[in-house]
């Protein structure tokens, strides 16, 4: 897992995050440094060790499917930058 560089531009695209050229080069060097530090996990013997996704011992928490009031549409859309007929409005995605 040794990384000399990390393709920040590509990763930023995956994250839908536009970065300036300066940010790309700054993050590049800072993240390589952080990843070098993280390399130590490669030396750890994890054979046969189960991964921990969650500290909580609970799994499959079920409840009755009861109809109950939820946030009214008007309140749910109140913070939106743009709305139209109680819907979130975004630039056209289909031509």
């Amino acid at each position: 897992m040794k990384q000399d560089s990390i393709d920040v531009t590509y990763v930023a695209q995956l994250a839908r995050l536009d970065l300036s050229a300066e940010e790309v080069s700054k993050f590049q060097s800072q993240l390589v440094q952080v990843l070098e530090y993280v390399e130590q996990l490669g030396r750890l013997n994890v054979d046969g060790i189960e991964p921990t996704a969650h500290a909580s011992p609970r799994t499959n928490v079920f409840r009755e499917d009861v109809v109950a009031p939820s946030l009214p549409v008007g309140e749910a859309t109140a913070n939106a930058p743009q709305t139209l007929n109680d819907l979130f409005r975004v630039p056209r995605v289909v031509e």
């Binding site: 990763v11 993240l31 991964p51």
Partner: peptide
Amino acid sequence: ILGTYVLSSGYYDAYYLRAQKART
């Protein structure tokens, strides 16, 4: 960026899965 990278294809096992095992 770091979080997207460690989850991205090709790096998931080396970073994220390994970290979850270290967490155990």
